[in-house]
Design a binder for these strands. Sequence first.
DNA 1: GCCGTGGGTTGAACGTGTTCAACCGACGGC
DNA 2: GCCGTCGGTTGAACACGTTCAACCCACGGC
Lengths: 267, 267
Amino acid sequence: MTVRGTDGHDAVSGSGTVGSAAAGRCAADDPVTAQGGTGGGGATRALILDAALASFRERGYDRTTMRGIAQSAHVSLGNAYYYFDSKEVLVQEFYATIQDGHRRRAAEALQHSVFADRLRGVLHAGIDEMAPYHAFAGSFLKTAILPSSPASPFSGESTAAREAAIGLFREVVEGSAGGISEALARDLPELLWLAYLGITLFWVGDRSPDQIRTRRLVDTTSRLISRLLPLSRIPGLRSVTADIHALLVEMRQPMPQATQARGSRTR
Amino acid sequence: MTVRGTDGHDAVSGSGTVGSAAAGRCAADDPVTAQGGTGGGGATRALILDAALASFRERGYDRTTMRGIAQSAHVSLGNAYYYFDSKEVLVQEFYATIQDGHRRRAAEALQHSVFADRLRGVLHAGIDEMAPYHAFAGSFLKTAILPSSPASPFSGESTAAREAAIGLFREVVEGSAGGISEALARDLPELLWLAYLGITLFWVGDRSPDQIRTRRLVDTTSRLISRLLPLSRIPGLRSVTADIHALLVEMRQPMPQATQARGSRTR
DNA sequence: GCCGTGGGTTGAACGTGTTCAACCGACGGC
DNA sequence: GCCGTCGGTTGAACACGTTCAACCCACGGC
């Protein structure tokens, strides 16, 4: 697939920077100077990004170096930092591509109409998509889970990544045939995403062959959740469902914080 | 508290290495050569550990450097690495001390007999204990949550830290007055620990003043859980409780892995 | 034509975590 | 007495992420 260079670092594989959510310091979608010269300017950014993604895919996080990325992209080290503030934002770009893949795979499972099947399919799709990177998952997650930066589970900054993930589970809920109350349908996607988060955490540590234990966990979890849903209709359990809702509301409100300079609504 | 050195790195505060779970490559509790000379030998390890803990406390993870630790302990950089394989195992030692503090604080809450009070108290104790380090929590958790090494949530290697944490919640369960079925009492501690894990993750990202949102989350969570428990007695819900149990069993079994060389039972 | 402005680009430099070959010095065997 | 062994110790060295002052150069104003 990729042309091998002298030290395995020369290859630049893709061409299209895959996603589009890429929005660095210099907006690539604003073609003010993108046309200058023989393709330099804005194209450089894509070059670096492609090299980074390829390296992440082939070598994982730890063994991908900024110097290697720069070399693959035929730019200087400093230039890579000109477009991407840190290695971390590069890895977030990588997550975005994985999430794209997840969504693509999930589409198939979303053909089903039974909730349990839909959920199970989407969860398995996620694991399928991540499978190639299981060996590196540990070092990846290290920079992902943390609320210090955008792609964290909680954290007020409305990450596009998180919204997209929750949106996927919203599809799971909304397309289901069974009667899910409207109130529940509002909370459920977030809860499912939380469950998916836990499963992912488990998956990272799962050393069983082909991560079969995580697959079992997915089966068990989706069965459990689908059995749990009807219970919300039982009058005697109203108080607990209300509690769960309250808990979610508690978690949901964006964290108030000092560094709110970044535009939070536009874009 | 600590004597200030020339660059704030000279001070060594404590004296007793705090905990005891410290069990590196050279067992400190085996005083074979610990008595040699003017206190050298085994004592070096404690010196380094104390310096590391002090630095973590004062500066957090990121701004604590191995060189700083070595300098504080009046040893060479290489010597620090002789006793501690990496900065990460040092931070795990730090967790152990925090967990000790948690247990100490929790003792008070465990005077109560009502489950909800016990749980709530223990959870708050945990937050109280961690509070001083909230500013650094992000970088700490980064190395804690991950299964790449011992102190991960899941991961087969029976971490002493995890066992201790679950043990704390076992006390919560066992000392409760209300009738908690024996089967539930076996699973509950692990579930509570899982919940605590989630709360901790939330806490890390909580930028509200004094982390008040996490406190509210703790209250809501303990109330919810305590209301959930009686439901396990309802016959109609037996199948879901069975599912939950199955899920836990699924998660519990130690991960089979290649690198099982480390002594797993002895010690 | 000249200058200055500013986006793009560069490589050296800094401080970091980690590794390693060398060194020290006490102890035990001979 | 000598020598080998082995835990302890050292500082140089490596590769890394990140920063920064300098540089290039196309463009617009004058």
